[in-house]
C-alpha cells in the first residue's frame, strides 16, 4: 500500500517548504501561530498527548478530575465499521464551555483530540477518530472551570473480506 497522499505526492514536500517561509515571512502578522502560542495555556499540550492512560492524560491536560454528567451527550457507533475512521461527536447543554476533549481509553495514547471553545462558539464538535480495539470513548467538557464527562463503549473489530 502506498503512503503517498494520492495524486499529488509532492504536495507535502512543497508544504514543508512553504511552512518555513510562512514562519519567517509572516511572523509579524496578527494571526501567526508563533505569538499566539506564547501564551502558556494556549500551547499544544504535548505532555497530555504522551500519556498512556486516560486518567494520566486528563490529569496532564486539566490537572483535575471529571464527573459524569447527563448534560454531556456523546454520540458514537455501537460497532465501528472500521477502527480507523470512527465518527464521534459531542454536544452539551452546559454553560460557559471553554474546551471539549476526546479520550480513547484503549489506544496506546489515550488523548485523541482537544478543542478550545471560545466565546460565541457553540459547545459541540464532530470528528473522526482511530480506535485500536474495542474501547471506552470518553468526552470531557470543561465548563465554568469544572470537568464533566460522558463515556460510551465502541466495539471495534478488524477488517477482512467485505464491502
Amino acid at each position: 500500500m502506498t503512503t503517498t497522499t494520492g495524486p499529488h505526492p509532492t504536495r507535502r514536500l512543497i508544504l514543508q517548504g512553504a511552512a518555513s517561509v510562512a514562519l519567517i515571512g509572516l511572523g509579524n502578522l496578527p494571526f501567526a501561530a508563533g505569538p499566539a502560542r506564547a501564551a502558556a495555556n494556549d500551547k499544544y499540550p504535548e505532555e497530555a498527548f504522551k500519556q498512556k492512560s486516560e486518567a494520566d492524560a486528563i490529569k496532564a491536560l486539566y490537572g483535575k478530575t471529571a464527573e459524569p454528567s447527563d448534560k454531556v451527550k456523546l454520540d458514537a457507533p455501537e460497532i465501528a465499521e472500521n477502527g480507523g475512521v470512527v465518527p464521534v461527536s459531542v454536544t452539551t447543554t452546559l454553560d460557559k464551555v471553554t474546551s471539549i476533549s476526546f479520550f480513547v481509553a484503549e489506544n496506546p495514547f489515550a488523548l485523541a483530540a482537544s478543542y478550545k471553545i471560545p466565546d460565541g462558539t457553540i459547545p459541540g464538535v464532530a470528528n473522526r477518530l482511530k480506535m485500536a480495539k474495542t474501547t471506552n470513548v470518553v468526552a470531557i467538557v470543561e465548563a465554568d472551570g469544572k470537568l464533566f464527562s460522558a463515556t460510551k463503549e465502541v466495539k471495534v473489530t478488524v477488517g477482512g473480506c467485505g464491502g
Binding site: P30, A36, Y44, P45, F49, G84, V85, V86, S89, V104, N107, F109, L111, A112, A113, S114, Y115, K116, I117, P118, G120, T121, I122, G124, V125, A126, N127, R128, L129, K130, M131
Partner: peptide, 24 residues
Amino acid sequence: GKDVFVANWGTAVSKDPYVKFSFK
C-alpha cells in the same frame, strides 16, 4: 480577527481528518 475554534490533535485523529462545529 478572532479565533472561533482551535483543535489540538494527536495521532488518534483519522487520516484525512474531519471536524464540524458551529459558531455565532
